[in-house]
Computed example of a mutant assay.
Amino acid sequence: MASLKTLIVSFSPVSRWITVNTHIDPWPVPQFEKAVNDTYRKSFLVSGCCTQGRVTFAVLIALARGYHIAHVADPTSGQSSTEACLGITSMNQAGAVPLSWRQLALGWQLNWADSDTRTRLLQFITS
């Protein structure tokens, strides 16, 4: 995600680094829920490691609480491809919108006429 952020000049994420330690589900961690609530947003883009655990539970609970969630499916992982696929399937069936990292990057680009970001994006995609 950090590499993708450098491609789009106008990208301004809400960055909240919260230590969830032993929690598979981050929502019981007060700092996590406060960080989400403090954004005053109802739509989030989620990606991370451990698809079958932290990513899936964070997404499923966010959906249950009324948030709109898109998740970047291809850079996440699990202990096996089966576990990752099952986590992604669970999120999708619950209403999360799956995206690939290229879809995300192209969505940030929006217009090939923007030559400043187009050049960097093409370099990134082909590297």
Rank of each mutant, 00 (worst) to 15 (best):
T56P: 03
L60H: 09
T126Q: 03
V20S: 13
I18D: 04
L121Y: 01
T89K: 03
T126Y: 07
A113C: 12
R120W: 03
N111G: 11
P13A: 13
V9E: 03
K34D: 12
S12K: 15
T19I: 08
C50I: 12
N21K: 10
N21M: 11
A70Y: 04
Q123S: 12
L106S: 07
L60D: 10
G53H: 04
T89N: 06
R118C: 08
V55W: 03
S80R: 03
V97M: 02
F57L: 08
H68T: 14
S47C: 15
A70E: 07
S127M: 14
S10K: 15
F11V: 11
V55M: 08
T39G: 08
G87P: 00
F124W: 14
L4D: 10
W101Q: 11
A94N: 01
T19D: 04
T126R: 09
I125W: 04
L121V: 09
A84S: 14
G107C: 07
A35Y: 06
R54T: 11
D74Q: 07
P26E: 00
V9S: 07
A58Y: 01
L4T: 10
L63N: 09
I8T: 13
M91H: 00
S10A: 13
Q109S: 02
S100L: 00
L7I: 12
R118T: 12
A62E: 08
R41C: 09
R54P: 03
L45I: 13
R120N: 15
S10R: 10
R65K: 15
I88E: 00
L63I: 06
I69M: 08
S77N: 10
S3Y: 14
P98M: 03
R118G: 11
Q103Y: 06
R118I: 10
G48M: 04
V9R: 07
V29A: 10
I69G: 03
S43E: 07
S77M: 02
D25H: 09
S100F: 02
L86H: 02
V29R: 13
R120Y: 05
P30V: 10
P26G: 05
R118P: 04
K5T: 15
G95Y: 01
C49V: 12
E83K: 12
C49S: 15
R54C: 14
D116N: 06
S77A: 05
V29Q: 06
R102M: 15
A94P: 02
E83N: 15
R120I: 09
